[in-house]
């Protein structure tokens, strides 16, 4: 993965403002590489970090990170061998059983993930799944509401990284568990929308084991000169495909051993 930055500071700020406008006012924009075809993944992260700087300057609090593009099929499709990452803030969090407004979202989709809460700081490079498990306080089930700001959910890796990995909202819930009490590789998951099963899978769909996705996230952070702080909430990536939701939809994600997470969507 190239973390090389090719764009000027001026271009990075310009693209950041474009993404920020689309995120805060909920409209779709063309993917950034239409205008900057030479844009690298490093450029994408430079835009994402500028976006984070602006949000934090406005008083948003970072609560953790998310891994995206963590299934082999999805990575192959994108022609990459690493997942993308994005930051999570308190403004994106919604409580379990919440009514979540879609008025400030473009075209939201939901996916089921195993989330980790860290008790120790983790630093790459060379972070392993074993190190992740040793540094984990507990795991819990989560639903991520992703929302690409790009028209038709069509993007490439530099664009989606700049758009903070399509992060929009997230709901953690269910039952907190010690990772050592579970086989995190074989947890079954069922996603229901309005009482109907719409997606299914097991946690190995995420890079063979969700802790592998967290290790890769830590190693990407190392390339960006950062570590994963103790106390971070980290989502490991979708086990199931993402399912579109609209006002009136009720969603419940049921996890083996971890309970369930529910929410509904309103105007």
């Amino acid at each position: 993965m190239s973390m090389e930055i090719t764009l000027s500071r001026e271009d990075i700020v310009r693209l950041c403002e474009r993404v920020e406008g689309a995120q805060t006012r909920a409209y779709a924009i063309p993917k950034l590489t239409d205008e900057y075809p030479g844009m690298t993944i490093g450029d994408g992260y430079a835009v994402q970090l500028e976006l984070r700087r602006r949000f934090l300057a406005r008083g948003h609090k970072q609560v953790g990170w998310k891994a995206g593009l963590t299934s082999k099929a999805k990575m192959k499709q994108m022609g990459v061998d690493v997942p993308s990452i994005g930051f999570l803030t308190d403004r994106m969090a919604r409580p379990e059983n919440a009514a979540i407004s879609t008025a400030d979202l473009v075209h939201p989709r939901v996916e089921c993930e195993v989330a980790f809460v860290m008790k120790d700081e983790l630093k790459g490079p060379g972070c392993t799944a074993g190190a992740v498990l040793a540094a984990t306080d507990y795991v819990l089930p989560a639903v991520e509401i992703i929302d690409s700001r790009f028209s038709g959910f069509k993007f490439d890796l530099p664009s989606v990284v700049a758009d903070n990995g399509s992060s929009a909202r997230f709901v953690g819930g269910g039952r907190a568990r010690y990772a050592r009490d579970l086989d995190l590789r074989t947890l079954g998951v069922v996603l229901e929308k309005n009482g109907e099963i719409v997606a299914m899978g097991a946690s190995a769909a995420v890079l063979g084991h969700p802790a592998e996705a967290i290790a890769m996230l830590v190693n990407i952070l190392a390339e960006l000169g950062e570590s994963l702080p103790a106390g971070s909430f980290v989502m490991s990536g979708g086990i199931t495909e993402a399912i579109a939701v609209k006002p009136g939809d009720s969603v419940i994600a049921r996890f083996q051993e971890l309970g369930s997470v529910s929410m509904r969507f309103v105007e």
Binding site: K72, R185, G188, V190, G201, A202, S203, R254
Partner: peptide, 27 residues
Amino acid sequence: LDITLAGMVLEKNGELHSTGVGAAVQG
């Protein structure tokens, strides 16, 4: 055992092939 929510992980020649869950069978 939670036969409804138990995950199913299928590997072929040492590589992950696909995943599923008990609920895939008639709920």
